[in-house]
């Protein structure tokens, strides 16, 4: 029985010792607080201008009857019609379904593959840096560029994949981007290729943080490799995996550039993600109200997903009990 409790020490003690009384009453502290606010106000200003204001504006737009004119947005009164139009649109249902499936499949695959890569990398005694650098190439490529590359690979007339297929089977190459299911899988594959290294690096960082004594103890207790992985490695990796998943879900749910370049949302609208739908509604159809509704609802959905996630994983952090 090996039991390890990871408990965080309270950090504020040393700071509290220095201050004689409650914060508000000490002129010195008040002075420092003012200085602190002063120094952070430019940052707050920037955040307010470039993050908070656009968010509020998008929410306002989504509840307004918006008339786009040459002289700006005419807001013509409160309405819930934008959300009604969105909720009743088949396009939105499909985009939501597609984006969700896409997120679940790609994040799950990336997590499994990333963890495998991380475990291999951790055991490498030679050339780990080299391998990490190689692994990071897909991640370091700009998505638009890698999407263009994939479109050449998938192209059935002059694509590499089609040629390989033709040489092996003798049959004419498959038209991967021409059918909804094939195009979805092709997109997912390109995404997994690109983002698995990111997950691997995060998981690797988590792996090297696990004290080696735990593995030694497990070995002494006679645990098999498989059992050690599930009972020691995975539980201790949970916070790291939580962060990796959080990042990936946020990114995958906002999917835009890969289908925009690779499939244009097609064939038909079968690979149109929520972000693409919002963009097309706003900038192709010049229909800002419903477009804003799509954008805001997507943000709300992903926010709720992340909060649920954080909660689930937060309970684990610092309370891990490993028992074998």
């Amino acid at each position: 029985m090996a039991t390890a409790e990871l408990v965080h020490e309270p950090r504020a003690r040393s700071m509290a010792e220095g201050s004689p009384g409650p914060i508000g009453r000490d002129p010195n502290t008040r002075h420092f607080a003012r200085v602190g606010w002063g120094f952070s106000s430019p940052a707050f200003g920037v955040i307010a201008a470039f993050t908070i204001f656009p968010i509020i504006f998008a929410v306002v737009l989504s509840f307004q009857n918006v008339n786009v004119t040459g002289s700006g947005f005419g807001l013509q009164g409160f309405t819930t019609a934008n959300y009604h139009a969105m909720l009743t649109a088949g396009l939105w249902h499909h985009a939501l379904w597609f984006t969700t499936i896409y997120t679940v499949v790609t994040v799950a695959c990336e997590l499994v593959l990333g963890t495998v890569f991380a475990l291999v990398l951790e055991r490498l005694t030679k050339g780990r840096g080299m391998m990490m650098a190689l692994l990071l190439i897909p991640w370091s490529l700009i998505t638009v560029i890698s999407a263009e590359l994939w479109s050449y690979i998938y192209n059935p007339t002059y694509g590499v994949l089609g040629e390989i297929w033709h040489v092996i089977t003798g049959a004419s190459p498959p038209n991967l981007l021409g059918y909804p299911l094939d195009a979805t899988i092709a997109l997912m594959f390109a995404d997994i290729w690109k983002t698995t290294p990111f997950v691997a690096i995060i998981v690797l960082a988590g792996l090297v943080m696990i004290p080696t004594e735990l593995f030694e103890a497990a070995e002494v207790d006679g645990a098999t490799g498989w059992k050690t992985f599930w009972k020691v490695t995975v539980p201790l990796l949970r916070p790291t995996i939580g962060i990796a998943v959080l990042f990936r879900v946020l990114q995958a749910f906002g999917l835009f550039d890969l289908p925009y370049v690779l499939t244009g949302g097609g064939p038909g609208t079968s690979t149109q993600s929520l972000a693409m739908l919002g963009y097309n509604t706003m900038f192709t159809d010049i229909n800002f109200g419903p477009g804003a509704a799509v954008a805001v609802s997507t943000a709300v959905i992903v926010l709720v997903m992340c909060l649920v996630f954080l909660r689930a994983f937060k309970q684990q952090v610092g309370k891990e009990t490993i028992s074998a």
Binding site: N155, P156, T157, Y158, S172, P173, N175, G178
Partner: peptide, 16 residues
């Protein structure tokens, strides 16, 4: 026409 014509835009048709 090739089956891939459903993915052809001008550049792909032109190239062929």
């Amino acid at each position: 026409s090739p089956a891939a014509v459903d993915t052809f835009q001008e550049p792909q048709a032109m190239t062929a």
